[in-house]
Simulated assay, not measured.
Amino acid sequence: MTGPVVIFSASIGAGHDGAAAELARRLGEQGLEVLRHDFLDMLPPGVGRRIRDGYARQLNTLPQSWGWLLNAMGGPRMSAGAAGLSASLATTRMLAAIPADAAVVVSTYPLASQVLGRLRGDGRLSVPVAAVMTDPSVHPLCAAAGVDVHLAPGLATADQLRRLGVPTLAVSPIVRPEFRPVTGPAERDATRRRLGLPADERLAVVVAGSWGVGDVAATARDITATGLAVPVVVCGRNEILRRRIGRDGSAIALGWVDAMPELLRCADVVVHNAGGLSSAEAMAGGVPVISYRCLPGHGVANAAVLARAGLSPWPRSATTFAEELSRAMTATPAPQASAEPDAADLIAALAGSAPLIADPLQEAVV
């Protein structure tokens, strides 16, 4: 009997936890036991909450400082320091959270990957470790020495990791199966009525992560100014933003949305500023995606990767944004087909319950 798969994610935004939840679901369907942990809970009491709250405040009040910090952390000394500090704070609790009979350990959060890579490298962790990427761009902290394999969503991300010299396999995007194309106008209209959205308007769904951060209100105003679509802004847990947009009437303002697959099936286009899970979900549903007013740091980096891969244009001005929005409205998009293997299948292979699926562009890693 194969032991459990242990997954470490982080409750910073929704992307890391979202990938972990979908991996857990897929692995459970294969009959594997899954144990999930929040990396922030592996830190000394109160430290994880302060990190999460500080990150949220930084993005809300001085987002440019996040870009500066992320760039600084990309240097070898700062990167090594962050990895070392994480290991000193989290090692004891992480080791205690991994049962003796664990079959494989998975991380969807870079700092957790760094700690696990060190434990794997010095022999204190004897089972395979997989690091799962949740963004199209790769920060140097995502490449963890000692980790057995890094699983990258698509070839563009995999190429970045390989250049950093770590074992890598490309996988298909880790999104829930509910994110699928709309079957036709009848389903779209019925879904819009159910969600209280106008049935006879073009809709541009604006996503800004679970915290609703960035120049979201300005994006909504830019969409309205084009006259091409009605902006539907997903404000996440940012109630201040939802109330502000609702008051000025510049857009339809939604709070936290549980029915995100259905909302995306209503959309004519999705406009994002971070390029993580939400953009992957939209692409899986065959909805055109535009990167705009991107967050400093990971948002800008993700937009650059998506633009180079031809997956999401990245206009830098209101004029070029209007042009891209017009193109999106006349496009006939299709779901992004992926020939890469399923990440859950590769993790199951590492756990010893299935044969490893090799990536033809990468030498064998196990």
Rank of each mutant, 00 (worst) to 15 (best):
M1S: 12
G3H: 07
P4Y: 10
V6Q: 11
V6R: 13
F8W: 02
A10P: 12
A10I: 04
G13V: 09
D17P: 00
L23S: 07
L23N: 13
Q30Y: 07
L32F: 06
V34I: 12
R36Y: 03
D38G: 05
F39L: 13
P45W: 10
G46A: 10
G48Q: 06
G48E: 02
D53S: 14
Y55G: 05
Y55S: 08
N60Y: 06
L62H: 15
P63G: 04
W68A: 11
L69Y: 15
G75I: 04
P76C: 00
G84W: 07
S88C: 05
T91L: 03
T91H: 02
T92A: 15
M94K: 08
M94I: 01
L95K: 08
I98M: 07
A102L: 11
V106M: 04
S107M: 06
Y109P: 02
L111C: 03
R118V: 11
G121Y: 02
G123I: 02
S126W: 01
S126F: 01
V129S: 08
P136W: 09
L141T: 13
C142G: 02
A143R: 05
H150T: 12
L151T: 01
A158P: 09
L161G: 00
V166C: 05
P167H: 07
A170I: 07
A170W: 03
A170C: 01
V171T: 12
I174L: 15
R176P: 01
P185R: 11
P185C: 12
A186C: 00
G196P: 10
A199D: 10
D200V: 01
D200C: 07
V207N: 10
A208E: 01
A208I: 06
W211L: 15
V213N: 08
T219V: 13
A220D: 01
G227C: 09
A229F: 01
P231Q: 10
G236N: 02
G236V: 04
N238I: 08
N238G: 09
N238S: 01
I245K: 04
G246S: 12
R247Q: 14
G249L: 05
S250A: 14
I252G: 08
G255I: 05
M260A: 09
R265Q: 14
C266V: 11
A267D: 10
D268N: 14
V269T: 14
A280Q: 14
E281S: 13
A282M: 11
A282S: 12
M283E: 10
M283P: 02
A284S: 15
G285V: 08
G285F: 06
V287F: 00
V287D: 04
I290D: 09
P296E: 00
P315T: 07
P315E: 12
A318K: 14
T319R: 15
A322L: 09
E323G: 10
E324P: 08
E324N: 06
A331W: 02
T332A: 15
P333D: 09
P333H: 05
A337G: 13
P341N: 06
D342P: 04
D345G: 08
A349L: 09
L350N: 03
A351L: 04
L356M: 15
E363M: 13
V366K: 09
